[in-house]
Amino acid sequence: MFSLKEYTQEIFATIILLIILIALRMIVAKLIRRYANTSHLLEHRTNLVIKYIHILMNILVTISLIVIWGVDTKDIFITVSSIATVIGVAMFAQWSILSNITSGMVLFFSFPFRIGDTIKIHDKDFPIEAEIEDISTFHVNLKTKDGEKIIFPNNLLLQKGISIIPTHHEEREFYD
């Protein structure tokens, strides 16, 4: 029969791990928000980055719980490799989505340009000069001087040469 005394260490370790997870989630969210405030980044971009980091933390805690509860290492590797294979096959056609999400994270932390900046994208076939209206997880919304709206994928922004064109205009506030 099941006895709590047999699993005291596992239960104690699980409780401590969950407390650490909750504390780390709050600390990380606070640090990212502070970083975003000092960098004047938009709230919805900050929330996306926090969400991605929380997902990563949850995956690591799940793996830790599997180890704490004594699941055989061989079984863990078989399960993880099977899941990775299925995800790899399913996501093979969707690599650009993952690339855009990763690029969005890079743009968040490096912020080479901001909303309101006018940029020139150096593309041999289709050069673009436009103002950045929004930077989201997958793409950047641009608006040309002629009023044309262009949606440009994040991963291409990191692949192309970009010039930030200095503009002399009054400061504007941007809202989510």
Rank of each mutant, 00 (worst) to 15 (best):
R25M: 08
F152K: 03
I27V: 15
F92P: 05
V67S: 12
I32M: 02
A36V: 08
E131T: 15
D146N: 09
G70S: 10
L18F: 13
L4P: 02
I63G: 06
H169S: 11
S64I: 03
V71H: 10
L107C: 05
T38V: 11
S81L: 11
M91I: 10
M1A: 13
I83D: 00
L21M: 14
T14Q: 05
I53E: 01
I115F: 00
L31K: 12
K120W: 05
F77M: 11
E173M: 08
P166D: 13
A84W: 02
M57Y: 03
D134E: 15
I150K: 04
N37Y: 07
T62L: 15
L41Q: 13
I83H: 05
W69Y: 04
N155E: 11
T46V: 08
S99C: 07
I19P: 00
M26E: 13
R34F: 04
I27M: 15
R33L: 04
Y52F: 15
I162R: 03
G116S: 01
Q94S: 11
L60T: 03
E131N: 08
W69I: 01
E6G: 13
Q9N: 13
I50G: 04
L41K: 13
T46R: 00
L42Y: 07
E148T: 14
I68D: 03
H40E: 15
I150A: 05
I115D: 04
I53F: 00
T79R: 06
F152L: 06
S99T: 07
I150E: 04
S64Y: 00
V80Q: 05
R34Q: 12
Y175F: 13
P127W: 07
H168T: 08
I16P: 04
E6D: 15
K74D: 13
S96A: 09
D117A: 07
D117I: 02
T118P: 01
I55C: 05
R34W: 04
G70Q: 08
M105T: 11
F113H: 06
I151D: 03
